[in-house]
Design a protein around this nucleic acid. Sequence first.
DNA 1: GCTTATTTGTTATTATTTTAACATCCATGC
DNA 2: GCATGGATGTTAAAATAATAACAAATAAGC
Lengths: 260, 260
Amino acid sequence: MTRTERLARILAILEEHKASTVPELAGELDVSHMTVRRDLVSLVDDERVKILHGSVILHPKSDSRSVDSYYSLIAAGSLHRKQKRAIGALAASLVEPDDALIIDSGSTTEYLAKELPSDRPYSALSYSLNVLSETVRRKNCRTLFAGGVFHDNTLMFEGPEALDMIRRYRASKAFISSAGLSAQFGVTCMNPYERETKLAVMQSSLRKILLVDSSKFGVVRSEWFANLSDFDELVTDSSLGDDDETIIRGMGIRLHIARV
Amino acid sequence: MTRTERLARILAILEEHKASTVPELAGELDVSHMTVRRDLVSLVDDERVKILHGSVILHPKSDSRSVDSYYSLIAAGSLHRKQKRAIGALAASLVEPDDALIIDSGSTTEYLAKELPSDRPYSALSYSLNVLSETVRRKNCRTLFAGGVFHDNTLMFEGPEALDMIRRYRASKAFISSAGLSAQFGVTCMNPYERETKLAVMQSSLRKILLVDSSKFGVVRSEWFANLSDFDELVTDSSLGDDDETIIRGMGIRLHIARV
DNA sequence: GCTTATTTGTTATTATTTTAACATCCATGC
DNA sequence: GCATGGATGTTAAAATAATAACAAATAAGC
């Protein structure tokens, strides 16, 4: 077994058991305790693990994998991470005191939820587990949730009652994400149930704010739910092309560009 | 500082730092290392933490924890823990393949949710965050959720849409908890919104199963939602008095007693 | 094939933690 | 006020882990 394999196995064991000891790892890997120790210091240098006298755990920073990530769409290797995070942070800064928000599902809106301000009061209606996990823990945020049947690939809940709740609600701002947008074919998503929900959100919201990273421009998916011109604002990242920027501004949409 | 406060602070510190040591905790809590040690063994007995030589971490099982306990009603010092856990486990064993469940809010039902079987398919409708966190992670469980406005003391969601959803649903079994029950004054809870929800659940469920630890017998709270005789089964712990047992059996209620 | 460098193992020493026994403090009831 | 039981603190001995120095094994270069 190579050294690299050993390091990987150590991390795997820690993932599973949360913690371990040098003798335990030495037994498991069938090497001496000194070898384990030396492996561990190299993992410590990389900030992958933390050593307490007598035991090893995953580094608190990288450990976000245990539960949080269960309720998250943001995987380690997911695409356009930096862009999405920047977009989320910029969008969060648009929240004003006493706003009534609707926050759509998706990984970009999850970043928004993570960055939500904690110094002013507002309400937030959502329907996906990843957004919910963030809003419930904020004291200054009144959390509303539209339930339904759970879909475990999108972490979203959906059903007639959820639509009713959204239709009855009035949002001052809705943060909506999409899988594709095109000047010609409009703004599109992947599933019929997402479409239904987004349609209801568009109807109930005063200002409609689209959150998309620049890779979505020109992309068309199967489910249409709005025209680009239906949105009041758009938040994206700085890789946006000049043509696209001209088109968006030409439609009178307020454009926010997050520098990455 | 009381012992209970100390236990809670230890758990809080572990939540935040993932791990700690006896000297560290002793310094933080300003008590001797022996006191910390004795606190820790009691937490180990409750399976709340795990001790490795030289360090302490949250127990892997309850570590679903880092985030989870944020969504939990089960605090370190909460009362009748063992009884509730035993009741939850026994109630979970009543779940049969293809059951359509409604799971009420509360700490007893949280224990039920934690023990839910993973070897058979069923649906579970809930409306509280602690139950939700458990059902969403089970592949074999179809999760339904009745949304609404979030109440952060009970971790429960409530509103007209939630009631609609419950009323439209048909459960083969409902697991309901209560804050008090009395042969004379019926089964009671604390808040009007809990009452509304529980009433709806009673209406929509074929078999109504009450989960209460024995300390609730003879207790009357402000909000009535059912008579004892409205329930088909009752799960409680072995400290139940003989008189109460006779009354319950006399009503034709199937009684399950969890040995602690 | 030999030498050299790198990795791994062994051992003894040092430091830390655990355990246990006993002392002290504090609250409670008589 | 005094006695009693529970919780907390102190101390020393035993167990376990960390460190360091060196030996052995393996891999790499010539």
